[in-house]
Write a protein that binds this DNA or RNA. Structure first.
Length: 499
RNA sequence: GCCCCCAUCGUCUAGAGGCCUAGGACGCCACCCUUUCAAGGUGGAGAUCACCGGUUCGAAUCCGGUUGGGGGCACCA
């Protein structure tokens, strides 16, 4: 068998714990997950931590947690950052598979497909500069391939540690990409690349190929940035006598300027979105449509629906700009689709303890339609948490006095409102009753309801914009509402020229 | 510089030769609803399908070139 087309489908995602879970990695993981679910294949998580210097267990933990948070689960791989892997192809961390890579590197050395290279970084740099000056492709010149036995002994005596390079045959590499179709590269342009560091720790291109073979991966679905790396992988596969998997390169997620999405120009950590109160359902739906569509005009899908519909045939070739406005819209759609109870539960972590669970549940219907992100609830409910004095500190004439009216008018309206509400018992202090009474008062005054409500809203919430006024007053309670109107009255009266 | 990939409204996309005088969504604008803000409803602006040549009775859809954009060329992944 020279390829994997007869094998049961196994795909993998291979994040590197050198930073928090990246949007692009999440989307690639999602596509692999959806593909595996759709065809009934196996989905493997493998941690690519061969860059020992930059990999940390904290970041690995973040990746695992965040993937779970998104609802992405795997059939094989680590479950927590400790090592109770599930699956029979483990271990699933490359740092724990070093012996395997060393053995495969030895095989390559023994067969003559790879060789030691003693060139120093300085020497390599010099060659590269020379090539650039001559406008040639920067690649290794094969100097150490022509070393004599004596040369090697000399280097060894100097204490120099060699790297291992693959001898790349000058041949044309062709493969049928699942998304892009026939792609062709000339490996004569490649140069012999390094597969094992001088430290003995193997490099990405090498380990990815070894693991994909040993883990029986049949479909390698990854970002387009790996398209140009594929001929290296195929060269390695051939040198090692492995089976060739199918490759599929999905389009990149882009910054607004259409460059590859980066931390420098965009918010790339999924955690950051989570902290702002984006729902995982919205993020998943949004990410799925960045480079794929079901071919219809439907656009709201759950994870389950996505796994039923997802197919590689509808994956785009062109990159997609990450459009936060669209994410915001989707997030709102998902927030509004939640019941009050569900939403209250999600809101809990974003609201202060001063608001108890019952209070959170009571404000939820008032703010539901106004939330773009869960974190927005903090500002929307601040008037409930703030003391009367804090609210009073926010009072300003502009919000308190309706346009076209004098401060004295606002004072009069406020005074009337105060008397109206004062006449109510605690038991009558409900949104419905409040609204009826206040409307009647406005009418008697001869004011438009909206004008009458404006100073009231400002007095009660300290803001010109707030959740629905009467529901807010009900939540606040009679005493606090009255107290706030009193201090607003004081503020407005001070503004007004003596009547 | 070399190699590779890509190209439909500002953005995400539908479109697999006639159904397209190009559809939907986000955003934007207007109006309606309305106690503010939202949400919702209705309508609108917005794409000579990058350009130029072919193929065809017929092309956004196929082919070639041009231009533009992106990615890759590490002892990072």
């Amino acid at each position: 068998m020279t390829d994997t087309s007869e094998l049961p489908v196994r795909v993998r995602m291979a994040p590197s714990p050198t930073g928090p879970l990246h949007i692009g990695t999440a989307r690639t993981s999602l596509y692999n997950f959806l593909f595996a679910r759709h065809v009934g294949g196996t989905y493997v998580l493998r941690i690519e931590d061969t860059d020992l210097a930059r990999s940390t267990v904290e970041q690995e933990q973040d990746i695992i947690d965040t993937l779970h948070w998104l609802g992405i689960t795997w059939d094989e791989g680590p479950q927590v950052a400790r090592g109770d892997d599930i699956g029979s192809y483990g271990p699933y961390r490359q740092s724990m598979r070093l012996d395997l890579y060393a053995a495969e590197a030895d095989r390559l050395m023994a067969s003559g497909a790879a060789y030691h290279c003693w060139c120093t970084p300085e020497e390599l740099e010099a060659v590269r500069r020379e090539q650039e000056a001559k406008k040639e492709a920067p690649r290794y010149n094969g100097r150490c391939l022509r070393l004599t036995h004596a040369d090697r002994e000399q280097f060894a005596r100097e204490g120099r540690q060699p790297v291992v390079r693959l001898k790349v045959p000058p041949e044309t590499i062709r493969f049928d990409d699942l998304i892009r179709g026939e792609v062709e590269f000339d490996n004569a342009l490649l140069g012999d690349f390094v597969i094992v560091r001088a430290s003995g720790v193997p490099l990405y291109h090498f380990v990815v190929v070894v693991d994909d073979e040993k883990m029986d991966i049949t479909h390698v679905i990854r970002g387009e940035d790996h398209l140009s790396n594929t001929p290296k992988h195929i060269a390695l596969i051939r040198a090692l006598g492995y089976r060739e998997p199918r490759f599929g390169h999905i389009p990149l997620i882009l910054n607004p300027d259409r460059s590859k999405m980066s931390k420098r120009k965009s918010q790339t950590a999924i955690t950051a979105y989570r902290e702002q109160g984006y729902l995982p359902e919205a993020l998943v739906n949004f990410l799925a449509f960045l480079g794929w569509s079901p071919g219809t005009e439907e656009e709201i899908f759950t994870l389950d629906e996505l796994s039923q519909r997802f197919d590689l045939a509808h994956v785009h070739k062109a990159g997609a700009v990450f459009d936060v406005d669209r994410l915001d819209y989707l997030n709102g759609v998902y927030i509004r689709s939640l019941t009050d109870e569900q939403l209250a539960l999600r809101l809990r972590p974003f609201l202060p303890d001063a608001l108890d669970d019952a209070a959170v549940l009571r404000v939820t219907p008032l703010i539901k339609e106004r939330l773009v992100r869960l974190a927005d609830a903090t500002e929307l409910t601040a008037f409930l948490v703030e003391s009367d004095a804090e609210v009073a500190a926010l009072y300003d004439a502009d919000a308190l006095v309706p346009k076209g009216r004098a401060p004295a008018d606002a004072a009069r309206a406020l005074a009337i409102a105060r008397d109206t509400l004062d006449a109510l018992t605690d038991g009558d202090f409900s949104a419905d009753v409040l609204e009826t009474r206040c409307r009647r008062a406005a009418e008697e005054l001869g004011w438009k309801a909206g004008d009458f409500f404006r100073p009231l809203r400002a007095a009660v919430t300290g803001r010109g914009v707030s959740p629905p006024l009467f529901g807010s007053m009900e939540l606040l309670g009679r005493d606090r509402v009255l107290a706030r109107i009193d201090s607003a009255l004081g503020k407005v009266s001070a503004e007004a020229p003596t009547a």
